[in-house]
Computed example of a mutant assay.
Amino acid sequence: MKTIDWTKDELVAYILLFAANADFKESKKERDLIISKVDLKTFKEIHEEFENDNDYQGIKKIMTSLEQHNYNSEDIDLLMEDIKSLFFVDDDFDITERNMLKCLNRLFKTV
């Protein structure tokens, strides 16, 4: 895939949006948590891009950007903590979110 011109904040916003939509619903608490990690302008821009991508495109963009930003295992661990926080923010850590967490963890370990 070609390069992705995202900042680290844009990458984090996209990953958290991807995770927040694991259960096909994006709660206000999840949006608020994402906005607490990145600014509102970044959130809105990345949200629009996210809405236009399918899952395959999203995963490709995420993996390409993780590599471009030279994420290491420590960075991935911090990212996974943010994802866990996102899943628990609305007090509903359902099976689709659990599966997404496992899949992202496995996928990110390949970076």
Rank of each mutant, 00 (worst) to 15 (best):
K2Y: 11
K2G: 15
K2T: 14
T3V: 09
I4C: 13
I4S: 11
I4G: 05
D5P: 02
D5G: 08
D5Y: 12
D5F: 11
T7W: 09
K8I: 12
K8N: 12
K8E: 15
D9M: 03
E10R: 14
E10I: 12
L11I: 05
L11K: 00
L11P: 01
V12W: 03
A13M: 12
Y14E: 03
Y14T: 04
I15S: 11
I15M: 13
L16E: 14
L16K: 12
F18Q: 08
F18K: 11
F18N: 14
A19F: 08
A19D: 06
A19M: 12
A20M: 01
N21R: 03
N21L: 00
A22N: 05
A22D: 11
F24P: 00
K25V: 08
E26S: 05
E26F: 10
E26T: 07
E26K: 07
S27Q: 13
K28Y: 06
K29M: 04
E30P: 00
E30R: 02
D32H: 06
D32L: 05
I34F: 03
I34H: 06
I34S: 03
I34M: 02
I34V: 13
I35R: 11
I35G: 13
K37V: 08
K37Y: 09
K37E: 14
K37T: 07
K37W: 04
K37G: 02
D39W: 01
D39R: 02
L40W: 04
L40G: 03
L40V: 12
T42M: 06
F43D: 09
K44V: 11
K44E: 15
